[in-house]
Write a protein that binds this DNA or RNA. Sequence first.
DNA 1: AGGCTCACCCTTACGCCGTAAGTCTCATGG
DNA 2: CCATGAGACTTACGGCGTAAGGGTGAGCCT
Lengths: 220, 220
Amino acid sequence: MTGSAREPRRPLTRRRVLEVAVDLADRKGLEALSMRKLGEALEVEAMSLYGHVANKDDLLDGMIDAVFTEIDLPSADDGWRAAMRQRALSVRAVLRRHRWAIGLMESRTYPGPATLAHHDAVIGALRAGGFSVPQTAHAFSVLDSYIYGFALQEKGLPFQTADEAAEVAQAMFAQIPVDRYPHFVELATQHALQPGYDYGEEFEFGLDLILDGLERLHRP
Amino acid sequence: MTGSAREPRRPLTRRRVLEVAVDLADRKGLEALSMRKLGEALEVEAMSLYGHVANKDDLLDGMIDAVFTEIDLPSADDGWRAAMRQRALSVRAVLRRHRWAIGLMESRTYPGPATLAHHDAVIGALRAGGFSVPQTAHAFSVLDSYIYGFALQEKGLPFQTADEAAEVAQAMFAQIPVDRYPHFVELATQHALQPGYDYGEEFEFGLDLILDGLERLHRP
DNA sequence: AGGCTCACCCTTACGCCGTAAGTCTCATGG
DNA sequence: CCATGAGACTTACGGCGTAAGGGTGAGCCT
């Protein structure tokens, strides 16, 4: 009964556990990621996972660091501005692929190696671009706040496509006293709900506004 | 045994449930807020709460809206820039009081009345300041992304005071290969860990940078 | 006064969760 | 050939959100 011709079952490793966990979160959402479900996905009992992660928090920390691995490291070769722009777009692309990640960064506080390497490369590109240490701190703070904040906003939207947006808006307008929020309604109907509008495109506007500001700070 | 001279026990209302829930989350953290614990704090069984909130998600939605109630609504009387600056500071102050809230905005998608009123006032102040509808959308997006992103960053810090920061830094440097992250270490030791440094002060730098950018967009 | 209704609150129970503690299995090396 | 040890499995505990149903007392109608 035991040693029959089962498929040999690849051995569990921390790496494989993290990979499957990320995939599961991508497909089913973070709230569907329990130790038992993850075990099931790996064809293993939940408790076996504890040989490779200390506990669920450790699992989540590992997942975040795995996500950071996917972000392109900025290089200062084409100047700080190009480097910052490219890495901002890369962060955003990655956070779009892994929508659950932004919600986790809130609570996971101790950075893993990929996270540290990322931060180091960003700071390095700014320093190489001629930013002083305090200026670098400023720049790093605005940029990261903006990038993560935008991802947070985008995640909060109850829709992804324009069609969904229209549906949701209709449902909302049906429920709320429309004339109490005239400006909100104006913005929604005259702009956000127009065909072709995509909130995602706001990202680059804000990004360039901030980069312009940093440019002025840097070379006034 | 039943009808003895108990203190009369104020009746449960949705309002009171939300108040106590917010207070509990403030004091013990969001993960300590369960229906049972909340019931205990209200001297009531958990199931009794369901007369006043539909389920836990509804409770969380209500808590978020309660938080928005505390934010000062911007008025356009002193110009859009002053209005945006003051409301940004107010949002930040409120999110500092209720650190759990920022982590919730990620997933709560349907805005309550206070949230809508807030958004409406912000949009109204920008429109009154002369921003076109698309410009208003841009401005709203950058500002909110930045404000919430900054709060997220701040929440992610594993320390609050400078002393704690030094402790945490020491613990971290002891664990990681310091020479692999030279720029990160430089920024930390030469700047962030200096006495008197407070990450919170970075907020206004970024805020003013963005407001400057919006001013240029608006009156080029 | 007696009985009805209805609003609240309570009790019980179910299936899920993270994980502590202990057990089984089997490839390996002496 | 057996001892060892790693790695997976089993069992169990307390806590979670909440479905279903039971009590109880205030207010109203006859």
